[in-house]
């Protein structure tokens, strides 16, 4: 099996058995004022995730990363969102499921770790009880066994004094510890896929590294596929095997991590990489940045949505949406750009 096969969206019908999540032509509209004022947030997102893979979705704030995750989980407010496309989870299209079927998918097949550990745990329930409650939603395990399992999981995510922490309330734990609890909570339901939405954004940098290492270890040992949603390319490099780059609600580049980081095929990716700070960066020099800001979802430019900020843009980019261009070998992924695979870094002349 080639990487190209791994990442290319499948055509139709149920995906093969080793595909745990298959998103096809996902489009999400959100309403800003209850049933009126619809704004297209996700414009055609497709990708395939196989067992044990670690995928990262990268993009700036507002590019639609989180909404993609919430759309997959169907966690958006029904009256204020409209989702089209297919989301195949465990051989069934989740978009066509009843609410009841969908509840059985949540947690059991796809679990989520949220961005803000400070507010994502119920403040009036003990940690152990929260994990046990989640576990018992999906299996017939007894209260006692579930508590023992919760204790084992807290040990596994390296929480000190786990016996006591089981009886602690969330406010008695630090942010890093709470995010470990969130990881334990997600693992407790033994999902096939874990979606981690900016899991370390709210944490200190040193704690970030610990939590990411732990997350990687744990998902590997539990055999769960992972989607890491982040704006931080540095995190991606240490974690993911494959990368999707999102811009204005579309995937503009996909490919294996080394190729994307070393040889970006889309100018946007190149711009993001150029703005990263490395050890070689001259501390006195200003980091290059992509000029302008991502478009507002209700005002996406014509043609290629990146063209107003692109140093390579031509008239063609302004009028015509670029095709998804595959690399020389399908292993390399693809990019949605008229000049894909021939990108000059920003500032290297026009």
């Amino acid at each position: 099996m080639t990487v190209g096969e791994i990442l290319a969206p499948l055509e139709s019908g149920p995906p093969p058995d080793d595909v745990v999540l298959d998103v096809r032509g996902l489009r999400t509209q959100l309403s800003t004022s209850r049933g009126a004022n619809w704004i297209q947030i996700i414009r055609d997102v497709s990708f395939t995730l196989r067992r044990n893979q670690r995928l990262a979705i990268v993009g700036e704030s507002g590019s639609g990363k989180s909404v993609t995750a919430l759309s997959i989980m169907r966690l958006l407010d029904k009256s204020a969102s409209e989702i089209t496309g297919e989301v195949w989870i465990g051989g069934e299209d989740a978009q066509a499921m009843s609410d009841r079927q969908m509840r059985r998918i949540r947690g059991r097949r796809v679990a989520m770790i949220f961005q803000d550990p400070m507010t994502s745990l119920n403040p009036v329930k003990r940690i152990g009880d929260q994990i046990v409650a989640a576990m018992r939603l999906h299996s017939d395990i007894s209260q006692k066994d579930a508590m023992a399992e919760a204790l084992r999981l807290l040990k596994e995510v390296q929480i000190p004094a786990p016996e006591q922490r089981l009886r602690s309330y969330p406010h008695e734990l630090s942010g890093g510890m709470r995010q470990r609890v969130m990881i334990a909570l997600a693992l407790s339901m033994e999902p096939e896929v874990i979606i981690a939405d900016e899991p370390t954004t709210a944490l200190d940098v040193t704690v970030q590294a610990q939590v990411m290492r732990l997350l990687k270890e744990r998902v590997e040992s539990h055999g769960a596929a992972t989607i890491l949603i982040t704006h931080d390319l540095g995190l991606v490099a240490g974690f993911a095997e494959f990368v999707l780059v999102m811009y204005a609600g579309r995937i503009v580049e996909r490919g294996p991590i080394e190729r994307v980081l070393l040889d970006p095929a889309h100018p946007y990716t190149a711009g993001l990489l150029a703005s990263l700070c490395t050890l070689d960066t001259d501390p006195l020099e200003e980091l290059p940045s992509i000029e302008g800001a991502p478009p507002r979802p209700d005002d996406v430019p014509s043609g290629c949505s990146f063209h107003p900020r692109c140093w390579m843009a031509t008239d063609l980019c302004r009028t015509e949406r670029p095709p998804m261009v595959e690399g020389a070998s399908p292993d390399l992924g693809a990019a949605e750009c008229h000049f894909a695979w021939n990108v000059v870094p920003p500032g290297a002349g026009t």
């Binding site: 989980m73 966690l75 509840r103 059985r104 998918i105 949540r106 947690g107 059991r108 679990a111 989520m112 949220f114 803000d116 507010t119 994502s120 745990l121 119920n122 403040p123 009036v124 329930k125 409650a133 989640a134 939603l137 999906h138 969130m182 909570l185 339901m189």
Partner: peptide
């Protein structure tokens, strides 16, 4: 509308359970 309610939903809890077990006490 709180985050922990979204967390509860993401674990597959039913609306009734979310209302009585998670929301009411808060």
């Amino acid at each position: 509308g709180q985050n922990y309610i979204r967390t509860a939903r993401s674990t597959g809890a039913t609306e009734g359970r979310i209302r009585f077990r998670h929301a009411l006490r808060n």
